[in-house]
Design a protein around this nucleic acid. Sequence first.
RNA 1: CGGAGCGUAGCGCAGCCUGGUAGCGCACUACACUGGGGGUGUAGGGGUCGUGGGUUCAAAUCCCGCCGCUCCGACCA
Length: 437
Amino acid sequence: MLRSGFFLPTLKETPSEAQIASHRLMLRAGMVRQASAGIYSWLPLGFRVLKNIERIVREEQDAAGAQEMLMPTIQSADLWRESGRYDAYGPEMLRIRDRHERDMLYGPTNEEQITEIFRTSVRSYRDLPRMLYHVQWKFRDEVRPRFGVMRGREFLMKDAYSFDLDYDGAKRSYNKMFVAYLRTFERLGLKAIPMQADAGPIGGDMSHEFVILAETGESEVACHRDFIEMDWRGRDIDYTGDLQPLVDTFTSKYAATDERRDPEREKALGGDLVTARAIEVGHIFYFGTKYSKAMNAVVAGPNGEEIAVEMGSYGIGVSRLVGAIIEASHDDAGIIWPEAVAPFKAGLINLKVGDGDCDKACDALYAALRAGGISVLYDDREERAGIKFADMDLIGLPWQVVIGPRGLKNGIAEVKNRKTGERAEIPLENVPARLTA
RNA sequence: CGGAGCGUAGCGCAGCCUGGUAGCGCACUACACUGGGGGUGUAGGGGUCGUGGGUUCAAAUCCCGCCGCUCCGACCA
């Protein structure tokens, strides 16, 4: 992508509404613009990151055996009356009336809707288990939206739902999602700790929150220090096998969100206890037959009897993750993207646009990198070097490649790693290899 | 929903107290110079001062209502 033609309105100064790092940086880096309180437009750069996160979430959901679908944002109030949540949900739910005076709502979540789809489509235990998910915008009319996309009113969420015949099956589904979440967050470059959590208004008795530790987190959590040191990387998962042992290794040690904290266990941990603030990035629930009973989602069992299905739901805050990743990974100069979600892998800076040799070398390298499958943002603007560098640091691409007349005399480019700050002068022809190493 | 604050150019702000020509920095446009980490000079463009009403000869400024946004708290898949 040529910087000159890319809609990337960066800001030198921070709009006054932004209080925390991720919000500030997202506005300054031209990723989002606020439309109204807690509602944001995603500009091209931010949208690329959002899509990258979505992609990884999808891949891991698919790997775990969930199937993607798409449910609408606007739902009928009648469904919610069936489950009893139309009255229970309170003013957080945005209620709408259509031209025929029908009560509608902008979905804050989708249990009712998926249950309705399931109950009209599945009649036999032979069709179980099922896991379905979608990635869709939700709306919750928060009293006080804040922290940019981390606590917006409108937000993008992946929500999955599992349907099983009995508790053991539901537990297997729960474990699949548990493991899928570990893998998803690890691929996103995050250390997300699964914590005992309250089920909240969704109800149910098995629930984990996946949180990342960050000073700007909204809640206080506590966990065993082993979680901090645990090696999170590269676990090969066989979803057809027994996942319980793996789940056990992550749930046997103490880790609890604030409403689930246990003073006695914490006391016993002594020096092994870590308390910190945390950002919730995922939440999984087993809630049994809460909705299936209320909404009559039953299947015929082996003996022809009617059995209410066992359900679970599993959410990942996709848009919140963009902010959360930045909270976890930035410095004074700007964002530092983990490679997996970076909007581009590399930035290419032409230090002297208009200089024939410089332009030619940049064009050639730009083509070579793209041919090698490396996404590049090529800053071909006639700006001063300082502005280009500052901009690139702000945007936070993993690599910066700098070409100027001085280095070009010796056929070299400067390659800088945004994360480590390490700079190396290497021959132009070695640049593609260097970035893929 | 309790408490506090803010709204003046795209962004950051001053002006308001004590009413009288709407300002500064950045950004933007043109030209020249410059060019390896947020340039220099010259010349420009851009404002119903959130909105409605009131007071006044005169309101960005004083008074009242409304709207929007932010912060603290409570709330929170």
